[in-house]
Amino acid sequence: MPSETPQAEVGPTGCPHRSGPHSAKGSLEKGSPEDKEAKEPLWIRPDAPSRCTWQLGRPASESPHHHTAPAKSPKILPDILKKIGDTPMVRINKIGKKFGLKCELLAKCEFFNAGGSVKDRISLRMIEDAERDGTLKPGDTIIEPTSGNTGIGLALAAAVRGYRCIIVMPEKMSSEKVDVLRALGAEIVRTPTNARFDSPESHVGVAWRLKNEIPNSHILDQYRNASNPLAHYDTTADEILQQCDGKLDMLVASVGTGGTITGIARKLKEKCPGCRIIGVDPEGSILAEPEELNQTEQTTYEVEGIGYDFIPTVLDRTVVDKWFKSNDEEAFTFARMLIAQEGLLCGGSAGSTVAVAVKAAQELQEGQRCVVILPDSVRNYMTKFLSDRWMLQKGFLKEEDLTEKKPWWWHLRVQELGLSAPLTVLPTITCGHTIEILREKGFDQAPVVDEAGVILGMVTLGNMLSSLLAGKVQPSDQVGKVIYKQFKQIRLTDTLGRLSHILEMDHFALVV
């Protein structure tokens, strides 16, 4: 994948999101292997301009796509893939009243899908469409860049269908997702969380590099694949309309690839034109409109599966009536509230959605109805927002919020430890010299600072030695090549209790 991002070429006709291997024109390309080798690009942008032909009021008969309808489940399912879809609609009884809503608040519980998330729908649909058009064949390999849930859905379907599955996901995604993927037989590649989507090191860039190296491999490409919004247009939206008897006044959905909100909203605009569509985008993402909503100094966020630093091709923002931004604290607070007060075992993005819903639905009156999409299960986040310690460490809970008995030293300040200034190293000294210094002084790690004293990161003896043994660096290389740029900081005025929580999850903390 090139470091400079080429513009994806656009073909003359058809839909841009065809499933299957992508040609340089962004659509299915038939021909000899030699032709494909000559024409197939190194990668295709996940934010390529959409060429979708959908228009409100256009006859369904003019759609270029294969459409399906929700099917009634048999008493005995032939395999677990038949437990994807037909998820329950559940009334939220307490939270709406707590925040003064007059309307009825309903939750579409997508964590009841077989793999635990709304992404099971698009995973199965992308595979079925690729099999139907002859792209996927027995023994082929599926590769997908994902925040985890699409990966789980694909790995689940691949396990049943017999495909090899490789999932490329950023490091910030939970260990629970990784464990589930491994249990399903998927191979996992992790990428830096802070890598831009168009960087060769991003999950998108690495996935395309693997595709170019592995024979008979395919990126189904949830960011561009029409099967993504079509899955929701054909099934999720129809289920909502049936469950609500066609009567709903507002739908609120958090947005990642945009397939969920695009597919549902398009069908609702056709069948229930008075329904307002509300999009939820986390602070630090750029999906919301108008652009002024996205202006923030924050560039990272903890909530998973929603928000991006690019506009995915499948996201149709014209069908969203209003956007709201959400933050991590309210997302996790509301997710825990949904679990504790409503018994809905949902993930953090569901918290984002409901946090926005109780604001947006203030305009609705008694007798009206708001539906929220709860995308995934708490299963993926047992060591994250479900953990009091994690919430404390991230600053989303305060010590006084917890009532468990603490040891005698818990409320003492870090400054009472009488710490001395640490050994520091410059980023320009060599790895070999740094190892000598650390061994001589008896230290395992040291902060790396520039000549102005600005902290650049941390270097550890173990990481340097393993990097040297693996051949990633040489003793003569500058130590700046092996620094940890993500590390926890703590102030002298913070409590030892807070430091204790940090050290339970990290090997060190830097006192500043």
Rank of each mutant, 00 (worst) to 15 (best):
222 Q>Y: 01
175 S>V: 09
112 F>L: 06
276 R>D: 03
68 T>Y: 06
15 C>L: 09
275 C>E: 04
76 I>L: 11
182 R>S: 08
32 S>E: 12
228 N>L: 01
272 C>F: 10
46 P>C: 05
42 L>I: 14
33 P>F: 01
172 K>S: 05
183 A>L: 05
240 I>C: 01
259 G>F: 01
43 W>M: 10
13 T>V: 14
149 N>T: 01
90 V>Y: 01
26 G>V: 13
21 P>T: 10
192 P>L: 03
57 G>D: 10
15 C>E: 11
265 A>W: 06
225 N>S: 08
76 I>M: 15
204 V>T: 11
90 V>M: 01
155 A>C: 13
137 K>V: 01
172 K>C: 05
216 N>F: 06
11 G>I: 01
163 Y>V: 01
164 R>D: 01
265 A>M: 08
121 R>S: 01
113 N>S: 15
184 L>F: 06
49 P>H: 15
174 S>D: 01
258 G>R: 01
147 S>P: 03
271 K>G: 05
140 D>F: 08
224 R>Y: 01
242 Q>V: 09
185 G>V: 04
196 R>Y: 09
215 P>C: 01
247 K>D: 01
215 P>T: 09
264 I>D: 01
257 T>E: 05
38 A>S: 14
237 A>S: 07
260 T>H: 13
110 E>F: 04
141 T>C: 14
213 E>S: 06
256 G>R: 01
246 G>T: 15
265 A>V: 11
171 E>I: 10
145 P>A: 07
129 D>L: 07
112 F>W: 03
221 D>P: 04
98 K>Y: 01
131 E>I: 05
189 V>I: 08
105 L>G: 01
169 M>F: 04
263 G>I: 01
250 M>W: 01
104 E>L: 05
135 T>R: 08
61 S>Q: 14
250 M>R: 04
253 A>E: 08
224 R>C: 10
25 K>T: 07
25 K>I: 15
123 S>W: 06
214 I>K: 03
180 V>R: 01
22 H>W: 06
212 N>R: 13
58 R>V: 08
73 S>I: 15
255 V>I: 06
273 P>K: 12
18 R>P: 05
14 G>L: 14
167 I>L: 10
107 A>L: 01
221 D>V: 01
7 Q>F: 13
211 K>C: 05
72 K>W: 01
14 G>D: 10
125 R>T: 05
263 G>H: 04
79 D>L: 06
99 F>A: 13
251 L>C: 08
100 G>F: 10
64 P>C: 05
98 K>L: 06
27 S>T: 12
134 G>A: 09
196 R>N: 10
2 P>R: 11
44 I>V: 11
151 G>L: 03
202 S>V: 01
124 L>I: 07
201 E>S: 12
152 I>V: 10
231 A>P: 13
132 R>M: 15
206 V>R: 01
31 G>S: 11
245 D>W: 01
25 K>P: 12
67 H>T: 10
106 L>V: 09
63 S>E: 08
49 P>L: 07
105 L>N: 01
208 W>S: 05
215 P>R: 01
85 G>I: 05
77 L>P: 04
219 I>P: 01
94 K>W: 10
5 T>S: 11
13 T>A: 11
252 V>L: 09
178 V>Q: 01
125 R>C: 08
64 P>A: 13
121 R>C: 01
81 L>H: 09
265 A>F: 01
254 S>M: 05
136 L>V: 07
22 H>M: 01
128 E>V: 11
176 E>A: 08
272 C>S: 13
260 T>Q: 08
211 K>F: 08
211 K>M: 12
254 S>R: 06
113 N>C: 09
173 M>T: 07
211 K>S: 05
214 I>Y: 07
157 A>V: 08
115 G>V: 06
63 S>A: 12
225 N>G: 01
229 P>Y: 10
4 E>T: 05
70 P>R: 08
28 L>Q: 12
260 T>V: 07
115 G>A: 14
215 P>A: 07
219 I>G: 01
106 L>S: 04
98 K>M: 13
148 G>M: 15
270 E>R: 01
159 A>R: 14
180 V>C: 15
266 R>V: 10
223 Y>D: 01
150 T>W: 01
112 F>D: 05
218 H>V: 15
91 R>N: 12
49 P>W: 11
122 I>D: 05
205 G>M: 01
265 A>L: 04
235 T>S: 12
255 V>K: 01
166 I>R: 09
12 P>C: 04
67 H>C: 09
244 C>L: 06
65 H>E: 01
11 G>C: 15
37 E>N: 06
169 M>S: 01
75 K>E: 05
100 G>Y: 01
80 I>V: 14
198 D>N: 13
33 P>R: 10
88 P>V: 06
80 I>A: 06
110 E>S: 05
140 D>H: 01
10 V>H: 01
125 R>W: 10
87 T>N: 08
130 A>L: 05
176 E>H: 05
